[in-house]
Computed example of a mutant assay.
Amino acid sequence: MGSTLPRCLRSTGSILAALALAGLTGPVARADTPVIPDFTDGFGLTQVPDATEVRSTSDFTITVTTPQVSGPHKIRIFLPGEYAADPDKRWPVTYFLHGGGGSVDDAAAAPALRSDDMITVVPDGGLKGWYANWLVQNTAVGSANWETFHLKQVVPFIDANLRTVPDRAHRAVAGLSMGGSGALHYAQARPDLFGHTASLSGGIDFGMAEIRAAVLATELNLTGAWCAVGNSSSSSGTGTCTGYGPYVDSDAIFGSPYPILGADRIWNAYDPAASASLSKLADTKVTLYTGDQGVIDTNTATAADTVEARLDQLGIPSRLVNYGNGASLSPSCDGGHNYACWAPAFADYIPRLEAAFEAATTN
């Protein structure tokens, strides 16, 4: 049967070229490649070509660059299963902040983060970024404005490219260990963005010498400090991070940690446990989880108690779950600093968060 197309358009290449000129086709993809949303550069973020990792239509990672933070950085995204099937629906968003020595792939160790009721966004926080704009920018890791990257670039970039509900009632920030500190700080720094925050085994009291020492250990790359123990390839929580990246000066992130003549003023200004910082959470739903076993969670339990007490003094409601040795949380949890405890903690938290998102939608 003869073609009705003109002879000059009968070749496949010519047909595709003609369709492209008409705006009817884009880049040719393999038939078995899952289709994910298209992202447009903006807000200072530029996507790295051919660096996208697609595991499924609801689990993929894009890679971006920004002048704010040296090097390419990944953003892993979990979409609800019905995201593509319901193109008119908008979804709440939770930002998950990983721990020290971790990566965006750590989120896979907490299955509850893969929700059919919300979008989960996991931005790279660096091996020792501490979710802050560093005091010193000319270290071995280069530019390190992590707070600017996340709050002024990643959040609006996600809202521009995905069907989010872009208000604080439908946006949460949660993290563990180093990321627990970051989650509480981000909620304080931008209460206009986040209506919910959760810290799991977080280094949230910068007034504690032990937590300042943990920050210094990451700067000096002393492994065995506050690593996010366990990762996506070891969801049982038995893995250990391999390090915090290149050595940097101990004053690089927050300046001098010593409380002498105000030398530690940046630490105090950032401190998530400071009453002035906590007062910014008056309209934010705050949740804290921690065990109390081992050298690390013994300190995170103390920090969580301090934060809860100060919130109480300020008249700000919060929910603290100290699961002690882990027996009350899960048979897998030993009360220590690991995903064997954090995964069931998220399994407890996420349904509560989903219910809060739903209540905000219906009210």
Rank of each mutant, 00 (worst) to 15 (best):
S14Y: 00
L16S: 08
A18S: 12
L19E: 10
P27H: 08
V28P: 00
A29C: 07
A31K: 15
D32R: 11
T46K: 10
T46F: 01
V48H: 07
P49E: 07
D50L: 07
V54Y: 00
F60D: 08
T61I: 13
V64Y: 06
T65L: 09
T65G: 10
T65V: 15
S70L: 15
G71C: 14
K74R: 15
R76C: 01
I77W: 09
G81H: 10
E82C: 09
A85R: 13
F96N: 11
D105I: 00
A108C: 00
P111G: 09
L113M: 06
R114I: 04
S115T: 11
S115K: 10
V121A: 01
P123S: 08
G126E: 02
W130E: 05
Y131V: 07
Y131N: 02
W134M: 07
Q137M: 12
V141C: 01
S143K: 11
N145G: 11
E147C: 12
N161L: 05
R163S: 03
P166D: 06
R171H: 10
R171F: 07
L176S: 14
L193T: 14
T197G: 04
T197D: 02
S201F: 01
G203I: 01
I204M: 11
G207V: 11
I211K: 05
A217P: 04
L220T: 11
T223K: 07
W226H: 01
S232N: 12
S234T: 13
S236L: 15
S236Q: 14
G239I: 15
T240A: 15
T240Q: 15
Y247M: 06
V248H: 00
D249N: 10
S250G: 15
D251Q: 09
F254G: 02
P257I: 00
D264P: 07
A269F: 11
S275V: 15
T284M: 08
T287P: 02
T290Q: 04
G291A: 05
Q293F: 01
V295Q: 05
I296E: 01
I296W: 02
T298P: 00
T300I: 11
A301W: 05
A304C: 11
D305W: 02
D305M: 04
D305R: 11
A309G: 14
D312F: 04
Y323V: 14
S328V: 13
D334W: 03
Y339F: 14
C341V: 14
W342R: 05
A343M: 08
F346P: 01
I350G: 01
P351R: 02
F357W: 09
E358W: 05
A360W: 00
